[in-house]
Amino acid sequence: MKQRPTVIDLFGGCGGMTAGFVQGGFDPVLAVEWDRAAASTYAANFGESHILGTDIEAVCTQDLPRADVVVGGPPCQGFSNLGGKNVDDPRNALWKQYIRVVEDLRPKVFVVENVERFSSRGEFAMLLEEARRGRIKDYKLSWGILLAADYGVAQRRRRTIVIGSRIGHIPLPAPTHAKIPTRDLRPWENVRSRIAGLPAVPHTTELPMSTVDLFGQTIPGVFKGSDLHIGRRPQLTSLMRYDCIPPGGGRFDLPPELQPACWRNKPTGTTDVMGRMRWDSPSLTIRTEFFKPEKGQYLHPQWDPTDAANRVNRPITHLEAARLQDFPEDFLWCGTKIEIAKQIGNAVPVSLARAIAQHLRRYLDG
């Protein structure tokens, strides 16, 4: 039997990229993740023995295994629309550590994943220069913006993807889905396909009282996916606001008396704030605070225009967000509610990672 190709996941988070590569036929041999809760989630799913719970700057490449592919999404807060766009943010320089590992380990292929804005920043130009005449000049690069919905994810999440190869040019993977399907492209997946059938009213607002010892310390977990279907306790004013928002709507659907002053004084922009999802469309990007409707289009899609009793007036739960990120039903989780939400929102959608992995396999298998 042909040996499965191997993958190293730098900035591994909770393992969204690794999960997709495992589904795509790869064996993970190493992951690096400094955040202890995220590293614990990774360990619960893929094993504790091959994950380094440390900062990538402290990693000595001489001690690392070799792999066919190195993947990673350096932290993106400095590039993000929500991160202040600080060019000097030290987190922006972590891609240099990623290149250091690639230079030393010499994988056949590497993949960089980051926010859409990364492709227009000076750091990205520096990355291209490293490929032209610097430390990775023997790698041929392909890059572009991929829309997750075009690869089977029920989410309109746009990400910069860079593929570097020293086994010949590897283009970006072709879409498998489209908003308007064709003979070769399936229709976009939608919110209904991911969260329909889950209880409209979560039976609890808390995670189970459970702990696990990982990396020498005790952390909340390990939790099953069903444990993540947790609600909140919104105030009456919030419930009144939720009740006014139809599918696809947002803060502009609120009557003046329910608008806070900051919204009344801002007649344009932030159109997805206090938004409600649509059953038959992909969601917008699932971020780390999906449990707060004031942060984006995160209200449950069920809303009947004529029957107030047939409305689900709450934000999506952690489980629903994880499903929209395409985490498998048997995926396990560690951390507090806020820590797990960060893990879900920061992850690479599993189906997007799988599509990239399957694409790379065709080149690695020759």
Rank of each mutant, 00 (worst) to 15 (best):
G275P: 03
V222C: 06
P234E: 07
P234A: 08
P267E: 12
G248E: 02
T211S: 10
H203I: 15
T204V: 08
G249H: 00
R232G: 06
D213V: 15
P267A: 13
G197K: 14
W263T: 10
E257K: 10
G250Y: 00
T204M: 04
T237E: 12
G197V: 11
E257V: 14
T211K: 06
Q259R: 15
K224F: 04
T270S: 12
F215G: 04
F252P: 00
F223R: 00
L239W: 06
T218W: 04
E257Q: 13
D253L: 02
W263E: 10
G248T: 03
D213Q: 14
D227Q: 06
R233M: 06
P247G: 09
P246C: 13
E206H: 11
C244V: 09
G216D: 07
T205F: 04
M274A: 07
P247L: 08
G197A: 14
W263P: 03
R264D: 13
P202M: 08
E206T: 15
I245K: 01
D253Y: 02
H203W: 11
G248P: 01
I219W: 00
T211N: 07
D243V: 07
E206S: 14
A261H: 10
S210D: 06
G250W: 00
T218A: 14
P267T: 13
E206Y: 08
F223Y: 12
T218M: 12
L207Y: 02
V212N: 01
S238T: 15
G248V: 02
W263I: 12
T270F: 07
C244I: 06
L236G: 07
R241A: 05
G248Q: 04
D272F: 00
G197Q: 10
D227I: 09
M240E: 12
P255A: 12
D227S: 06
P256R: 11
G275L: 01
F215K: 05
R232T: 07
P260I: 14
G221R: 02
P260K: 12
G250T: 04
